[in-house]
Amino acid sequence: MMAYMNPGPHYSVNALALSGPSVDLMHQAVPYPSAPRKQRRERTTFTRSQLEELEALFAKTQYPDVYAREEVALKINLPESRVQVWFKNRRAKCRQQRQQQKQQQQPPGGQAKARPAKRKAGTSPRPSTDVCPDPLGISDSYSPPLPGPSGSPTTAVATVSIWSPASESPLPEAQRAGLVASGPSLTSAPYAMTYAPASAFCSSPSAYGSPSSYFSGLDPYLSPMVPQLGGPALSPLSGPSVGPSLAQSPTSLSGQSYGAYSPVDSLEFKDPTGTWKFTYNPMDPLDYKDQSAWKFQIL
Rank of each mutant, 00 (worst) to 15 (best):
L179H: 07
P282L: 14
R176T: 03
Q228H: 11
A207E: 01
V83P: 14
L186V: 04
A3G: 00
Q50C: 15
L74N: 06
F215I: 04
Y214M: 02
D130W: 07
L237F: 08
E168M: 12
G109Q: 09
W86I: 15
P9A: 02
A166C: 07
T61N: 03
Y11R: 03
P205A: 10
S124H: 07
S254D: 01
L222D: 00
C202N: 04
M5Y: 09
Q104S: 09
F58S: 12
P108L: 03
A198D: 02
S182G: 03
V264L: 11
E80I: 06
L78K: 01
R126H: 05
S167G: 06
T159I: 15
I76F: 13
F201D: 00
L179R: 03
P153S: 05
L253D: 01
A158E: 01
K60C: 05
A198L: 14
S124L: 05
L286V: 02
Q99R: 06
A56D: 05
A56F: 06
Q28Y: 11
S150G: 07
A207Q: 04
V30T: 02
S212F: 15
F215P: 01
G110S: 05
V72N: 15
L54V: 13
W86F: 14
Q101W: 03
Y195M: 02
L253N: 02
V13A: 01
M26H: 04
V72A: 00
Q50M: 06
W163V: 03
A174T: 02
S161D: 02
D219A: 11
E70H: 09
V23Q: 01
R69Y: 12
N6D: 05
K120I: 02
K270V: 13
V264E: 01
V72R: 14
S245P: 02
D290R: 11
M5S: 00
T45L: 05
G243K: 11
T159R: 05
P197H: 08
D284S: 13
P240E: 02
D290M: 14
L25T: 01
S206L: 12
L136S: 03
P64D: 13
S238A: 06
K277G: 00
L267D: 00
S152R: 11
I76E: 14
G110Y: 03
R176K: 08
A114Q: 03
V66K: 02
K270T: 14
T187A: 08
T123S: 02
K289N: 04
P282K: 09
S22W: 15
R40P: 08
G122D: 02
I298M: 00
I298H: 00
P240V: 13
L246W: 11
Y191E: 00
S245E: 04
Q28F: 15
T129W: 03
P165H: 03
S249W: 13
S212V: 10
V66E: 11
A56S: 03
R90H: 10
K60Y: 02
L267T: 01
V264M: 04
G8T: 03
S141L: 04
Q111G: 05
P127A: 11
S34I: 09
L286H: 02
T123A: 03
I162V: 01
L267F: 11
S139M: 05
K88I: 12
R95P: 14
A207W: 09
G183F: 13
Q111E: 08
L57G: 14
Y191C: 02
T45F: 06
S161F: 14
